[in-house]
Computed example of a mutant assay.
Amino acid sequence: MPLTLGRWRIDRYENAIWLQRQPDPNCLDCNGAGRTDDEAQEIETSQPRIEICDCWNPWGGIRIPIHFRLRSPITERYPF
């Protein structure tokens, strides 16, 4: 269950916490949706062309690991 604080969305996955910045609700280009629909197309298709707005990067985020995996020491002198 994601938690939203202002423009930040906080998700917990398996071994990490992800912080993602959401679209700007005061953006004049997308009105807070994070995308702009390009309706001026040369060829008519069933789906409009969607552009990501500059106020949001859906692939950017901060990953904070929760569990640190400790490596076990090698006890063998020769592994083969």
Rank of each mutant, 00 (worst) to 15 (best):
L70F: 08
I10A: 00
P2D: 04
C27M: 02
I10M: 02
P79L: 06
N26C: 14
D29N: 14
E42T: 00
G60M: 10
A40I: 07
A16C: 13
N57H: 05
I74C: 05
R49M: 07
W59M: 12
S46W: 09
E14R: 15
P48T: 02
W18Q: 11
E51R: 11
W18Y: 11
R35G: 10
N57Y: 07
P58V: 03
R21D: 08
R49Y: 07
G34A: 10
L5C: 10
E14F: 14
E51I: 05
P25T: 03
E14I: 15
R71I: 04
H67S: 15
T4H: 08
I10Q: 01
G6W: 07
A16G: 04
P48L: 00
N31T: 04
C27F: 04
R77D: 09
W18D: 06
N57V: 01
W56D: 03
G61P: 06
Y78D: 13
R49N: 11
T45H: 06
G6M: 09
R77H: 12
Q22D: 02
P23M: 11
M1K: 07
G60P: 03
T45M: 02
C53V: 05
T4M: 09
S46L: 08
W18F: 08
P23E: 09
T36N: 08
Q20R: 12
R12D: 06
P23N: 11
R49S: 11
I17E: 03
R9S: 08
Q41N: 03
I66G: 06
C53R: 07
C27Q: 02
C30F: 04
P23W: 11
I43Y: 09
I10S: 00
E44S: 15
R12P: 02
I17L: 10
Q41L: 10
L3V: 10
E42N: 00
R69P: 06
D11K: 12
R12S: 12
R21F: 04
C53E: 02
R49W: 03
G34E: 10
R63T: 11
G61E: 04
E44W: 14
N26S: 15
D11S: 14
I10D: 00
N15Q: 11
A40H: 04
W8P: 02
W18K: 11
C53S: 05
N31F: 05
A40Q: 10
G61I: 02
I62F: 13
P79H: 07
N57C: 02
D29S: 13
R69D: 14
E39I: 10
I66C: 12
D37P: 07
P23Y: 06
E42V: 01
N57E: 08
R21I: 10
W59P: 00
D37L: 15
P58E: 06
T36F: 09
G6R: 04
L3F: 06
G32P: 05
R77P: 04
T75Q: 08
D11N: 12
N31P: 01
